[in-house]
């Protein structure tokens, strides 16, 4: 399996001369194709900064990020926008669906802005909706469906463009545990059936428990890694809790 994402000594500084904040202090890791990777860390650990850098929304201060063989830290403003459009899919904590559009249109929008032909759009939307189990909601508006369904719609929108890498920021953050479970299971199915590659930032040990591998970030550095391997769900979850208590602070996030 090829390496989809490679970060090499990524550093990120904020602020000015007098007051410099180091958000990332040299982070290096690889993500392979078809892998489902979680990123965990306490508030302020730098995980969102990392995600912003990988998603090309923010620029790194030092180091390199290579996605699908292309070094995004070397790209210009214009080609970055194109890269973002063609190679990346985004899922946000607060869904970010357009309230004026139906579910169908929200998903289709990702393709229309990429100027795909209408016939292809219709077929793909139905296909993706089927995988994420939201076929019944296609004609509804976002306000008519549950939070879990909304997040799956966001997932469908991220997936439909066949991105090299799907980036998810706290996708279960606004969901109840039942919806969160359904969402995480549909992510698993994406990875299994569509060979999608997902990088998911989360607070939630339960959500992280669905991943293949978990990266723990602390003070802007990679602190620890956990790989599921052949562990049972229960064992993997216990290991996660263990690391979290080592990280300190965030155990009350465990549900």
């Amino acid at each position: 399996m090829s390496i989809i994402l490679k970060t090499m000594n990524v550093e990120k500084y904020y602020g000015n001369k007098g007051n410099l904040t180091r958000a990332l202090a040299g982070v290096s890791f690889d993500v392979r194709e078809g892998e489902y990777v979680g990123v965990m860390g306490a508030s302020g650990s730098g995980k969102t900064t990392l995600l912003n850098c990988i998603s090309t929304i923010d620029t790194v201060s030092a180091g390199h990020i290579i996605i699908g063989g292309e070094d995004i830290t070397e790209m210009g403003h214009k080609s970055l926008a194109g890269f973002r459009r063609e190679k990346l899919g985004f899922i946000f904590q607060d869904f970010n669906l357009l309230d004026t559009l139906t579910v169908y249109e929200n998903i289709a929008l990702a393709l229309t802005i990429r100027k795909r032909p209408a016939r292809e759009i219709d077929r793909r939307v139905k296909e993706v909706a089927d995988i994420l189990d939201i076929s019944d909601t296609l004609r509804k508006y976002p306000y008519q469906i549950s939070g879990g369904q909304k997040q799956r719609v966001a997932g469908a929108r991220a997936l439909i463009t066949d991105p090299t890498l799907i980036l998810a920021d706290e996708p279960t953050g606004a969901l109840d545990s039942k919806s969160a479970k359904a969402l995480l299971e549909s992510f698993r199915r994406l990875v299994r059936e569509k060979n999608a590659t997902i990088l998911m930032v989360t607070h939630d040990a339960f959500a992280a428990g669905h991943c293949d591998r978990i990266l723990f970030i602390r003070d802007g550095k990679l602190f620890h890694q956990l790989t599921r391997g052949n562990d049972s769900g229960k064992l993997f979850f216990d290991k996660i809790i263990e690391v979290i208590s080592l990280l300190g602070g965030d155990t009350n996030d465990v549900r």
């Binding site: 357009l98 309230d99 004026t100 559009l101 249109e105 289709a108 929008l109 393709l111 229309t112 802005i113 100027k115 032909p117 209408a118 016939r119 759009i121 219709d122």
Partner: peptide
């Protein structure tokens, strides 16, 4: 006309106006 509706941001613009 799906072709026109599913083109660029057409449906967004229409919904934008319709929604308001």
């Amino acid at each position: 006309s799906r072709g026109l509706y599913l083109k660029n941001l057409n449906m967004f613009v229409l919904r934008q106006i319709n929604g308001k």
